[in-house]
């Protein structure tokens, strides 16, 4: 079943074309990876899908409802949520309060057992009373995910979930995310190819606002154009 269907998305900031006729489909249960150089339009794409930006052209359907013109809070209620490239939690509030805030207007909130279980799973239970701003980056990343999961999203868009993490933490995050795949559909923007290789069922490559490749990771990451324009010889 098609969960997310974006068609011919075009987004322009003044003279700068950030996205040009980008098509993208994601079926429920499929983990989609999005890669591309800095400035290729990945975050802009997520911003368009989640209602933070209105594209000049294009259509977005999620779960058979049109998302264009809807505000981020309405899109969240429809079951589509996202995290940010730079970690964002309510840093002056405690972890517990952060979770409660995520629950306050959740359309399909987890019950309290579910919240406790998810908190335990993300290893944040011992931090419930800590101020979120005092957590380590890795803990904050997990809190971000927890705040989304208590809302039981159908699709979770993660914008560079391992950005700034150490290699051990990256390893642990990949393991967490592979378990997470069983809980909700994931869309992952990443620069770390290890994450994409291990998690993604399919990869989309953006270059200067255009989609240049779309397919299984092994195929896409070996694609001559992708190697030339983005990966370079080192990672390939």
């Amino acid at each position: 079943m098609t969960l997310l269907n974006a068609q011919r998305i075009s987004m322009q900031f003044g003279g700068l074309i950030a996205l040009r006729d980008v098509d993208m489909r994601q079926v429920a249960g499929e983990t989609l990876g999005m890669i591309g150089p800095n400035g290729s339009g990945k975050t802009t794409f997520v911003n368009v899908i989640t209602g933070h930006l209105t594209p000049q052209r294009g259509e977005v359907h999620f779960d058979d409802i049109s998302l264009l013109g809807r505000k981020p809070f309405q899109i969240a209620a429809a079951g589509l949520t996202r995290t940010y490239q730079a970690v964002r939690v309510f840093s002056e509030l405690t972890v517990q309060e952060n979770i409660a805030t995520a629950l306050v207007d959740a359309a399909r909130p987890l019950d309290s057992d579910g919240v406790a279980e998810t908190t335990e799973w993300l290893e944040l239970r011992h931090r419930l009373d800590a101020r979120a701003g005092s957590l380590t980056l890795y803990e904050q990343r997990r809190l971000e995910v927890l705040m989304r999961l208590v809302q039981r999203p159908k699709l979770l868009m993660l914008d560079e979930p391992v950005g700034g993490l150490s290699s051990t933490e990256v390893r642990a995050t990949i393991d967490l995310l592979s378990e997470l795949k069983a809980r909700c559909t994931l869309f992952v923007i990443e620069h770390t190819m290890k994450v994409i290789r291990e998690l993604a069922d399919r990869v989309v490559v953006l270059l200067a606002g255009e989609k240049i490749a779309d397919g299984p990771p092994a195929e896409v990451l070996a694609d001559q154009r992708v190697v030339e324009k983005y990966l370079g010889s080192a990672d390939a």
């Binding site: 989640t50 969240a76 964002r88 309510f90 002056e92 959740a106």
Partner: peptide, 24 residues
């Protein structure tokens, strides 16, 4: 109340509040 919780969320980060489903 939950109204107060929403307002505090808006004070802390209204963009994040909106992403979490709050009608800012």
């Amino acid at each position: 109340s939950s109204f107060g919780r929403r307002l505090t969320a808006i004070r802390e980060d209204d963009g994040l509040a909106e992403t979490l489903g709050i009608n800012v």
